[in-house]
């Protein structure tokens, strides 16, 4: 029996173990398009039957929701002023000229205080919009 095939298979298996551990130490990536998540724009969606999914922006979260209607327990967004996670149903949303993510082109921002939302809208030519996750 040759030894080198066993050595090679074991070596690659160990590389995979190292790869798995290295992957765990990396930062979060968007569940939809796999780009790195900026914590200030993070959106979390908790489906009724699964673990929480993290998205890089409101745009990606909406795209995911479009294909998974009726499967969501709750959605949290990040307040851009404090960085705190808040339930999307009590957040204020502004669509402005500021792009949160060049790749997705998302322009919707989330705030926990109405005053902060209005300030952002005034400064960056935006308007306060309805909850983008609310079902019509």
């Amino acid at each position: 029996m040759k030894k080198w095939p066993i050595i090679i298979v074991v070596a690659f298996t160990l590389i995979a173990v190292a790869g798995s551990l290295f992957k765990k130490s990396g930062g979060d990536v968007c569940a939809l398009d796999a780009i790195k998540i900026e914590p200030i724009y993070q959106v979390d969606i908790t489906p009724a039957d699964g673990k929480t999914l993290k998205f890089c922006c409101i745009g990606c979260a909406r795209k995911w929701l479009a294909g998974n209607k009726g499967k969501v327990e709750y959605i949290t967004v990040t307040d851009e002023v404090t960085g705190k996670r808040i339930d999307s149903s009590i957040a204020y949303f502004v669509e402005s000229s500021i792009v949160t993510n060049q790749s997705t082109g998302n322009r919707i921002h989330a705030f926990s205080e109405k005053a902060d939302a209005e300030k952002h809208a005034k400064e960056f030519g935006g308007t306060i919009i309805q909850n983008p996750f609310a079902e019509p």
């Binding site: 995979a16 190292a18 790869g19 290295f22 992957k23 990536v29």
Partner: peptide, 21 residues
């Protein structure tokens, strides 16, 4: 990739360190 809804093989080597291997 730990991205259950993302089906892009081009993203695979980027998100799995030993994916190219």
């Amino acid at each position: 990739m730990e991205l259950p809804y993302h089906h892009c093989l081009y993203c695979f080597p980027k998100n799995v360190p030993d994916g190219a291997i």
